[in-house]
Amino acid sequence: MIPQAVLNEWYPVAMIALVGPRPGRQTQLLGSDIAVFLEDGQIVVQGAKGQRLAVTLRYGHVWACPGTPAHDLFPIPEADQPGRRLVDCGVVRVKCSPLRAVENFLDIAHFPFVHTDVLGAEPHTEVGRYEVQIREDSDEVWATKVHFYQPQAAKSAAGGIVTEYMYRVAAPTAAVLYKTCPNQPDAWDVIGIFVQPLTEEFCEVWPWMALFDDTTPQADLIQFQQMIFLQDRSILENQIPRLLPLDPGKEIPTQADLTSIAYRRWLKRKGLTYGAQMVAA
């Protein structure tokens, strides 16, 4: 039985630009077959029994809710900010819990080892203190004042710099990060990870970006993001167990994992346990 709280959330199921006529994109959501296709100029998400799911088109993607939407899709105000370039990065399938994919996105301590010489490098491995809260008004998890040393944060940077991040869990399987933009210190680059839960142990991941960058070719932006995410993929497919443990005794966090601790607590509190392991067997 899938908890009602899980069914009433929004999930990404396709990239708007890639949706075609029937049969369209045949895929899965929460273990059930769905099809995403164009009909009379409208994007339709159809369940296995022919039922139509609630649909929202936003941030380059088709979002569907298999139950009764508990709320509107989360806002990303930067998506409407003039001058930003919105980039859809396509889809990558990963054999892991959708929740593990989100948790990895919230993690910075792995940068020197998994994204070596790009997002981090030894010996600059320290994660400083940062602030984490579950914001009651928006019902989101936020991490702020996250600082990390990056060897080459931009092509123009001669040496390494300390980059600041904010992380935000906006939905059970969607997170957004804000990262200082080296060329425009007063603005944040915005990168989203939208995760489609195919099953509890399989997901498809749709990275998305909203950047101030007029010069870099589209293909380079997409490939940079795909490179980063594919470096994570071999990690995600080799974590044991495949499900995300919500039992605090199952894995050992440190201060660097405060965002992950809050994310797990938030999931547990809200009953968003699809893809989670509740109690160690």
């Binding site: 070596t116 010996p123 071999s234």
Partner: peptide, 17 residues
Amino acid sequence: MPGIHRLHELKPTPEAV
């Protein structure tokens, strides 16, 4: 390339910074 990890052992254990 993504999917092929570097041999981190080729670098010595880093000094403290």
